[in-house]
Design a protein around this nucleic acid. Structure first.
Length: 411
DNA sequence: GTAGGGTTAG
């Protein structure tokens, strides 16, 4: 009997709901157990049914209507659901019902109302709500400021910004966004600099502002200064590169991020856009991106001719995914196809061997480099070998290789 | 439980 005694169990059950049928079943249980008056449980039920079926506002409303005396918390949730998903007229009647039932709006309800009137394009009513609120917090101030900005009234927004008693991150960020939208990057930057603590949103807002203005140097400068970049900030910098026609930088950025969703987007963009995807470096960047984003083999095999750089990207991609043996096999296939490896290719494959602990394979590749291709190994190559030998317990061999070969090389 | 950042198509 998990219900009455263990709300978390009900909640986790609710979260698995996908269809209306699942929800019905849980709802039936809630009623059957006599929990339909449990405000906490019903609140979560409303939220979860909306997440599962956003367009279906009738269902949460029915569940709500079974609650005999809903508290303001439940009213807020239901009104927000209607405001976001239902026809706007439904919100009005809910407000009226709420008032009739003797409920006085709280600070949450005020912010909801401001948001609601903003959506109806009724800025005057939004002001009325704002002015009539007995208690205001940063959220209500910021919500009202957003409405002013949406109407293009920067003077009013600026006035609110300067006058409000307390600001938080969202307030600052809203102002930055407003200025960016007007193309006033100088003042946006000024607000950004004045802000006490800048978060990912503040950075991303400015980055996309600079990118839209075509100033990728400034956008990149900001981006590089961020300590924790998330999906949205990556998207912003990348769309900047898209808009400003820098496909290779874009793809290498996506490769670093490793997001297959973005990789798909970029790829379709690349194929439709004005780019020549058969150029070796463009093609290699495509492979690199796909390799690091998980869908590696497809694009590689489809290439009409595989260039050394594309092989290296692919090998590295396999290495990253812990598929060392396949990487070594691909390296040999490359040689069989008549592609001559260069020093970078050897660094890549030796690193792969050392990463995957493939000692014998690594030694063979090293011999191949020095004997068949008569290349003299660089310090990087030695470092790979020493690492490889050392990691597999052959410390003495590593030491000898280092002193002997380095000695020969230095002489 | 409320306010703030990116992309896609037409």
């Amino acid at each position: 009997m998990p219900f009455r005694h263990s709300p978390p169990a009900v909640l986790s059950l609710l979260k698995t709901c996908k269809t209306l049928r699942d929800l019905n079943q849980i709802h039936a249980h809630i009623i059957h157990r006599g929990c339909e008056q449990d405000h906490y449980l019903i609140a979560h039920f409303l939220i979860i049914c909306t997440a599962a079926q956003p367009a279906n506002v009738r269902y949460p409303t029915t569940a709500f209507n079974c609650v005999i005396s809903p508290n303001i918390y439940l009213w807020n949730i239901l009104i927000k659901i209607h405001c976001e998903n239902g026809p706007l007229g439904g919100c009005f009647s809910l407000f009226r019902r709420m008032r009739k039932g003797g409920n006085v709006g709280d600070v949450f309800m005020g912010s909801n109302l401001i948001d609601f009137y903003g959506k109806c394009r009724e800025i005057e009513s939004a002001w009325k709500v704002f002015d009539g609120m007995c208690v205001r917090n940063e959220v209500s101030w910021t919500a009202m400021m957003v409405r002013c900005l949406d109407c293009g009234d920067m003077d009013a927004a600026r006035k609110m910004f300067d006058e409000m008693p307390k600001k938080n991150d969202a307030t600052w960020n809203t102002m930055i966004k407003g200025l960016v939208r007007l193309g006033d990057l100088v003042n946006a930057r000024k607000v950004f600099d004045e802000m006490p603590v800048r978060d990912a949103v503040s950075f991303t807002t400015l980055i996309s502002g600079y990118a839209k203005a075509g100033d990728m140097a400034a956008a990149r400068f900001m981006f590089d200064q961020m300590d924790s970049k998330d999906l949205v900030s990556w998207s912003a910098i990348m769309s900047g590169y898209v808009q400003n026609g820098k496909p290779v930088i874009l793809m290498s950025a996506c490769a670093q991020l490793g997001s297959s969703e973005l990789a798909r987007w970029i790829e379709s963009y690349m194929h439709e856009g004005p780019y020549d995807t058969t150029r070796p470096h463009v093609a290699a960047a495509l492979v690199d991106m796909n390799a690091k984003c998980g869908d590696m083999a497809k694009l590689f095999e489809e290439m009409p001719r595989r260039h050394l750089v594309s092989y290296c990207s692919m090998i590295q991609g396999l290495c990253i995914h812990g598929r060392g043996a396949e990487a070594v096999a691909l390296f040999h296939r490359m040689i069989d196809e008549g592609v001559r490896p260069d020093d970078v290719a050897f660094t890549v494959i030796l690193t792969t061997c050392s990463h995957a602990g493939l000692v014998d394979e690594g030694c063979r590749v090293f011999d191949l480099m020095t004997e068949k291709y008569s290349m003299s190994p660089s310090p990087d190559h030695y470092a790979c070998m020493v690492n490889l030998l050392g990691k597999s317990g052959r410390v003495k061999a590593a030491y000898e290789l280092m002193t002997f070969e380095m000695g020969t090389n230095l002489r």
